[in-house]
Design a protein around this nucleic acid. Structure first.
Length: 349
DNA sequence: TACACGTGGCC
DNA sequence: TGGCCAAGTGT
């Protein structure tokens, strides 16, 4: 069995050397072999962006962030609103707020140098067990177990772990630690994630192309696709609400910054009501309101939302000038509200 | 432990 | 089409 576990690392790294995905934040194995060292800033930024988020969604955001803020000192000096606008559309906005907090701690308290171990990294805002381990393994060659959703799936199948998640997490972490090699732990972690993303997929895994097919207990028992098991999910309730789009004759619009805590915290949006089964209409000012024929439907992690969008012409203080307002700076829900407002029957300006 | 927290793609 | 899923963290 000890040989079997060592063989996993060897087989996987051999596969990775031939099949590693080319990604904007990744240093190729060839460059690594020549002594190129991954930049902890870029590793950190990519790992935070990739939390619960697909590679396809992250690519352009990573490119824009690194062009605009090439190092942690630059990011630490950025305005909150600029970072929130650049993050708009990527979701889980607490990540953006913690990203900035973390950059400022590193820049101001740590001389611009990220901590050198997973244990120390995990003390920073927005860096949990996964991200701390990923940065330490990839940037510092620390042989720690890096366990994300891909690794949970791969390992649960390799060893036929039938305990449902999240209860299985400690066991999966221990098993991952056993198969993590002392040499090239960062490549091993990325190889596990590539394997999970391209071959050992949630549905229809292509075991015929898997470098670990001979080591996989679940495959030999014909239960690979049924793992990992997961605790049943709760049903999503449906909530309703009102959103209000105010525009003056010049095309300036009424926007507000949402409180830092809670849903869409720190993001820009249109004023609105509470979101509940029976919301109370709360227009931000007295005006001749017109309801858009298009409702906005949006699903968050834990509930469905249906918004009735109302529009009005009005002059008031604090409008965002037409030429500085970009719908792309809004979270997706508010971008949908804006789109719905366009199809309303606006009164003449 | 359980829940809050976004979004887009897939079948 | 609606539920599932993706490189999780904070409370």
């Amino acid at each position: 069995m000890r040989d079997g576990k060592g063989a996993i690392g060897e087989s996987l790294l051999k596969w990775y050397d031939a099949h590693a995905r080319v990604l904007p934040w990744r240093v190729s194995p060839a460059d690594l072999a020549e002594g190129v060292v991954p930049d902890p800033y870029r590793v950190w930024l990519s790992e935070v962006m990739l939390q619960q988020t697909t590679v396809a969604a992250v690519r352009d955001y990573f490119r824009r962030f690194t062009e605009r803020w090439p190092d942690v000192a630059a990011l630490a000096s950025a305005e909150d609103a600029d970072v929130m606008a650049e993050w708009a559309g990527l979701g889980y906005y607490a990540r953006a707020r913690n990203l900035l907090k973390c950059a400022r701690v590193v820049a101001q308290d740590l001389d611009g140098v990220f901590p050198g171990t997973a244990t120390e990294l995990q003390k920073l805002p927005g860096i949990g067990p996964y991200t701390a381990a990923a940065i330490a393994a990839i940037a510092y060659d620390e042989p720690v177990a890096v366990v994300d959703g891909n690794v949970e799936r791969v390992v649960s199948r390799l060893f036929s772990v039938e305990t449902p998640l999240p209860a299985a997490k400690p066991e999966l972490t221990a098993l991952t630690a056993e198969i993590t090699p002392r040499s090239r732990p960062g490549d091993f972690a990325q190889a596990m994630m590539d394997l999970g993303a391209t071959i050992c997929t949630p549905r229809n895994p292509t075991c015929g192309r898997c470098p670990l097919v001979g080591e996989c207990d679940a495959r030999s028992r014909g239960i690979a696709e049924t793992l990992p098991r997961k605790a049943p999910k709760k049903e999503k309730p449906t909530r309703r609400g009102f959103a209000y789009v105010v525009m003056n004759a010049a095309g300036d619009v009424l926007l507000e910054r949402r409180p830092d805590k809670g849903l869409l915290g720190g993001t820009l949006g249109f004023p609105g009501s509470d979101w509940s089964e029976a919301p109370t209409p709360t227009p931000p000012l007295a005006a001749d309101w017109v309801e858009s024929p298009m409702e906005v439907r949006h699903t968050f992690t834990h509930f469905h939302l249906i918004l009735s969008v109302h529009v009005a012409r009005a002059d008031t203080d604090g409008l965002t000038p037409r030429d500085t307002f970009r719908p792309a700076d809004l979270p997706t829900l508010m971008r949908k509200v804006w789109d719905a407002a366009q199809s309303a029957d606006w009164p003449q300006a």
